[in-house]
Design a protein around this nucleic acid. Structure first.
Lengths: 191, 191
DNA sequence: CTCTGTTGGCTGAACGCTCATTCAATCACA
DNA sequence: TGTGATTGAATGAGCGTTCAGCCAACAGAG
């Protein structure tokens, strides 16, 4: 049975993690004080140390909670049998949506990943997983004859890089279909 | 005439900017103390305030000095008359080399750009310039008939995104030719 | 060329402030 | 009544910045 206390505890925990996530993403971890978080959450500074041993542990709680790796990994799931174009389109759209939804954690991972070795590790894992999954999919479609034989290490980076560029440049996701069509058909004039 | 004093002053200035650039890139601006910079440069803390009014001004001195915008802008210069593939290949290779050389400043701009509005502005300017220049080039090649008509807002992002992805994933620049060929010829199997 | 006064690069200790963290006291639920 | 959530003031370390003084390089006078 869940007593009222346990439930409140859970809610508080979630509230503090969410508040900190938002502030960390907006101002950066180092520029966000415990006081900032406490004020934004409407609690006393001391309370944060009842839930987390340190600012550092709070940061890790955020990362563990919102880490987008599982969703990224599943991005090509259920692709079998469906046409390449459909799959790529859906994967790109899903990835874009995921990155948009998880703005906060992406910003935190990116920013802290530039300096903290342990975060860098996380980031690299995410990258390598994405490259492996994407490259694997493309190779299966080469084997099936839908794609011509080519260096999938190159094409998977083009695919992922395009999505990143669209997101970073603040462009509309409406560009995604055009990106896929360019990648599949090429932009050179037919000879 | 340049007195010995003036020359030393210039050298010191350069040394301090370079030392700070390296440390800022490695540990982040907020995690780098004036003491760190002074020790790494082998001078007293106070000296930094003889050359720069504040840590903030030192940061801006770095940005002004190593800003890669001019080189980026010139990346498609002298393209006229040469085949698309050659131009894209050289542009991509140059861009990759530039990003590699200027690692430090890119990291600083990226990291601080995530939180400081004025840096964000710099970053956005760099981006928009790159998109405008690249898109312009591609459109001229559509007009000349070398490329088929397509959405260059999409293809320019694919082009730039591919380079970013290669750099970020730590892959070899040897992938660049494959990326260009994929983009030009497409990866779909010929019908 | 030598002496002398001045300028300015350079030092490192000191200041004041902010921050993460602690802790004794209070409050509300069980 | 007891346990755990919550408070907010206190602590102490670390940081950016200041400043009074030292010394080498310079300019001008003799």
């Amino acid at each position: 049975m869940t007593t009222q206390r346990e439930q409140r505890k859970q809610e508080r925990h979630d509230q503090l993690v969410a508040t900190a996530r938002h502030l960390f993403a907006e101002k950066g971890v180092e520029n966000t004080t415990i006081k900032d978080i406490a004020e934004a959450a409407g609690v006393a500074q001391g309370l944060l140390y009842h839930y987390f041993d340190s600012k550092e542990e709070l940061l890790w709680a955020i990362v563990e909670r919102y880490n987008p790796l599982p969703e990224m990994r599943a991005i090509f799931a259920g692709a079998e049998g469906r046409p390449v174009r459909d799959v790529l389109l859906q994967a790109a759209t899903t990835a874009y949506a995921l990155v948009s939804e998880r703005q906060d954690i992406i910003r935190i991972l990116l920013r802290e990943g530039l300096t903290r070795p342990d975060f860098q590790e996380r980031f690299r894992t995410l990258q390598q997983m994405a490259i492996a999954v994407g490259s694997g999919f493309l190779q299966r479609r080469i084997a099936s004859g839908e794609l011509r034989p080519h260096n999938t290490q190159a094409s998977v980076r083009t695919f992922a890089g395009s999505i990143i560029a669209i997101y970073l440049s603040g462009a509309s996701p409406d560009l995604i279909p055009d990106v896929i069509d360019n990648l599949l058909g090429g932009v050179a004039a037919p000879t």
